[in-house]
Measured scan of single mutants.
Amino acid sequence: MLDDRARMEAAKKEKVEQILAEFQLQEEDLKKVMRRMQKEMDRGLRLETHEEASVKMLPTYVRSTPEGSEVGDFLSLDLGGTNFRVMLVKVGEGEEGQWSVKTKHQMYSIPEDAMTGTAEMLFDYISECISDFLDKHQMKHKKLPLGFTFSFPVRHEDIDKGILLNWTKGFKASGAEGNNVVGLLRDAIKRRGDFEMDVVAMVNDTVATMISCYYEDHQCEVGMIVGTGCNACYMEEMQNVELVEGDEGRMCVNTEWGAFGDSGELDEFLLEYDRLVDESSANPGQQLYEKLIGGKYMGELVRLVLLRLVDENLLFHGEASEQLRTRGAFETRFVSQVESDTGDRKQIYNILSTLGLRPSTTDCDIVRRACESVSTRAAHMCSAGLAGVINRMRESRSEDVMRITVGVDGSVYKLHPSFKERFHASVRRLTPSCEITFIESEEGSGRGAALVSAVACKKACMLGQ
């Protein structure tokens, strides 16, 4: 009897593995994704193909990295998701002549009506938060230079001027797309009239992360975010950046690689679950690469896999709870928690219980395998993109072996128990001629924006502006 049951459990697990095998990517698959990513990057950089390229390769006008001589107080704003952060950054000489960066910050959550109302409502709310922060720190009387981390696709015309191309991540505030974001912020500050600010720089969160990590390690020339969304930036040779005049030196390019796949480059790798996630998203047909990796989508992918296993009578005796059938019910943090389970399955059992399920031991094991399959594919897909960037940098610099540091931020990278190990191992397999160091950014977005502002202020002083 026991043997029969054991055989049935083994057969069930084997069927589960057959279904989950769809998520496995072979090294040849990853090399294919990497080569296609490089081709799209090239198209994004070139003037004649930029418009139709899915990977936009947006110039950021960040050319210099901090040298350690900029000092002063800077205000930093960070808008990239449902939370908005205001930070005071003091850049100065530390002990023994070292450079020191001290920060104080406060988080504000953005109400739904500000995210989806008008641009005026959104930026009025942001300036209200700045006003509140300055009151708390008794700094209303000071006109501070301000660095703005704005983590949406922007076409820069200068370091302090950028046109919002399109909202992502659930934002829909009308009247912002096609307009200068810094102008919208300046107008809102003017409307309030109770404080003055000098907006000197606007950067993407990947750029802010790279600059913040450069402060720790001067070989950091790539910034990457794996959180709600997924994106990367890197220092490109100016001669390859056709959208900006000049051939000397390097400029940081914001790849906006989340949109890779929007022209069909990933079609052969998309599964039924991916198509369902895409169809029910706020932007169907867009940001397809990001939807395979980002935390906004990972939990939902797992939920759809679990429903398939229920329908195949391989999980929960073929019956799903009402909660499990509800879109968004299986949160991405559950994926991390399930994979963090120590082996007694308590954590998995508790999560499934909150979803109205009474799982068996085998159910718990199957749910864990589903989570591992989805998150491992995410790590491997992400590795193909980064390997594409790094191999490109090595080739354009004609280096036999390139040493490089990548600064990384984002909740999936930082909080998932195995993502970074799987990701690092896969990147290294795909970049055999590179020695890569990964560092995690601390308060990256805010500190990085302030350091970019410090560079901009120093330049302005040198130019006598």
Rank of each mutant, 00 (worst) to 15 (best):
V226K: 00
W99M: 03
K102C: 06
V86H: 01
I436Q: 02
W257L: 10
A387P: 00
P153G: 15
G261L: 09
V71S: 02
L144N: 05
S281H: 15
D187C: 01
G170C: 11
A21F: 10
G464Y: 12
G117C: 12
H416V: 10
D78R: 07
V455F: 09
K56M: 03
V203C: 01
V401F: 07
G80M: 15
S445H: 12
Y61L: 07
K56R: 10
N313S: 11
R186F: 07
S411N: 12
S433N: 15
E331H: 15
M139D: 11
I436M: 11
A450K: 14
T168L: 11
I348M: 03
D42R: 04
R369S: 05
M197W: 07
V89W: 03
T65I: 03
K143W: 01
L463T: 10
G318I: 02
R192M: 02
A329G: 15
S453V: 13
Y214C: 05
G175T: 04
G446S: 12
A329L: 13
V408Y: 08
T228H: 11
K104R: 05
A320C: 14
K15Q: 09
F195M: 06
V335W: 06
E40K: 02
L301I: 12
E51V: 13
M37N: 00
D311Y: 08
M34T: 02
C382I: 12
G328S: 09
S131H: 03
G318R: 11
E248C: 08
G318W: 09
F152T: 12
L315F: 07
K140H: 08
T437E: 08
N83W: 07
K56C: 14
R447Q: 13
T82P: 12
F260A: 03
C252T: 10
E67H: 04
Q239K: 05
Y349R: 04
G388T: 13
Q323C: 10
T437G: 06
D42E: 09
Q138W: 05
K15A: 14
Y289F: 15
G117L: 09
L20Y: 14
S353D: 08
V222Q: 00
L315K: 00
Y413R: 09
R186T: 05
R325V: 11
A454W: 12
R447H: 10
A456T: 04
P111Y: 08
T228V: 06
Q26Y: 11
H380K: 14
V427M: 01
S100V: 11
E248R: 03
A378M: 10
E52S: 13
Y349G: 02
R429Q: 15
M121F: 13
L185V: 05
M393F: 12
V203P: 02
L164P: 15
E322K: 07
L77Y: 06
A208F: 09
T82S: 13
G246I: 02
D262R: 10
C364L: 05
T118G: 13
Q98T: 09
K90V: 03
S64Y: 12
E279D: 13
Q138T: 14
S127A: 10
S373Y: 06
G294Q: 06
G446A: 13
K143T: 01
R275L: 14
R428Q: 11
E70F: 07
L386C: 09
E196S: 10
S360I: 05
T437I: 00
D247P: 01
L430F: 07
E442L: 12
A450E: 14
Q337F: 08
R46A: 14
A449T: 14
A6V: 12
A320H: 02
M197V: 02
D113L: 12
V408E: 09
K104L: 09
T168G: 11
D363E: 04
T332N: 10
E221A: 10
N179S: 13
G81W: 15
S174H: 03
K414M: 12
V222C: 01
D187T: 13
D187K: 00
L430C: 03
P66H: 01
F269L: 02
R392V: 12
G223V: 01
V181T: 15
K104T: 08
D205P: 07
G97E: 11
K161Q: 09
V101M: 11
G446V: 12
I366A: 04
A449H: 09
H141E: 08
L134Y: 09
M139P: 03
P59V: 03
Y108I: 03
H416F: 10
L276N: 12
R85F: 09
D124N: 11
R368Q: 06
S69W: 05
S360P: 14
Q286Y: 12
A449S: 13
S433D: 06
D42K: 15
R422A: 15
M121S: 13
L184I: 12
G117R: 11
I351N: 04
I390T: 01
L30F: 07
K32H: 12
S360L: 03
S375H: 01
C461D: 10
I211W: 00
R358I: 03
S263P: 02
A232H: 04
A53P: 05
L122W: 12
I439T: 09
M210D: 00
V244I: 08
Y234E: 00
N204W: 02
E67G: 08
E157A: 10
N179T: 03
D267Q: 08
C434R: 05
G183A: 06
L430E: 03
A6P: 13
M238G: 02
G299L: 03
R377A: 00
G147W: 02
L134C: 13
G97V: 07
G464T: 13
Q138H: 09
E14D: 12
H380M: 13
D247H: 01
T431R: 06
R403M: 10
T60N: 01
N313L: 08
L352Q: 01
F171K: 15
A188F: 02
S426I: 03
L355G: 02
T431L: 10
E272T: 06
F84H: 02
M235S: 08
G264P: 08
D198V: 00
G183M: 10
N283G: 11
L430A: 05
I348A: 03
K102T: 07
S151P: 12
H317P: 10
L77N: 06
T342M: 03
R369D: 01
S375P: 03
G264Q: 12
A53C: 11
G92Q: 05
L144G: 02
I211E: 00
I404K: 05
E312F: 07
N204I: 04
S433T: 08
S433W: 10
G94C: 06
S396L: 12
L134I: 03
E14G: 13
E265R: 08
D262W: 08
S336D: 08
R7E: 09
T49L: 08
A201D: 01
S426C: 10
D132M: 14
L2T: 04
K172N: 12
R403D: 04
N179Q: 14
M202N: 02
E40V: 04
T103L: 06
V427D: 00
E112P: 08
A425W: 13
G407A: 11
E279V: 13
V62E: 00
E279A: 14
C252W: 00
K32T: 04
T228Y: 06
D73I: 00
